[in-house]
Amino acid sequence: MRKLTTSICAAGLLAMVTAAPAVAGAKEDQLALGKAVYLNKSRGNCVSCHAISDPDATQAGNQGPPILSMKMRFPDKRKLRAQIWDATKNNPLTIMPPLGKHWILSEEEIDAVVEYVYQF
């Protein structure tokens, strides 16, 4: 049931994103979506495990490394995306959920959160 609701949400969001071609290219909108994904409990909830120097990211957990120097650590942005899409590829025992592989986030949301974290 939960899964169903999640996929309905994801579908709704997808509709939202694709139905607005006028703003689709707007970088700010993508960054805002990425930030929402990062902070929102029912979306990526990245903040529950990763600290980030965004003043809105309060009560961050520390299960994973802090999100910083992303450009330096991931010169290849595709590698960053792959880590978020399926962290179990690098480490099968990782606590980090496979956000893309398990349809927790849509592809658009993953692109957005990649852009968002790439600023830090």
Binding site: Q59, G61, I95
Partner: peptide, 9 residues
């Protein structure tokens, strides 16, 4: 592995 490490609060 995650014992005593914060998940949010």
């Amino acid at each position: 592995q995650g014992a005593n490490i914060r998940i949010r609060a």
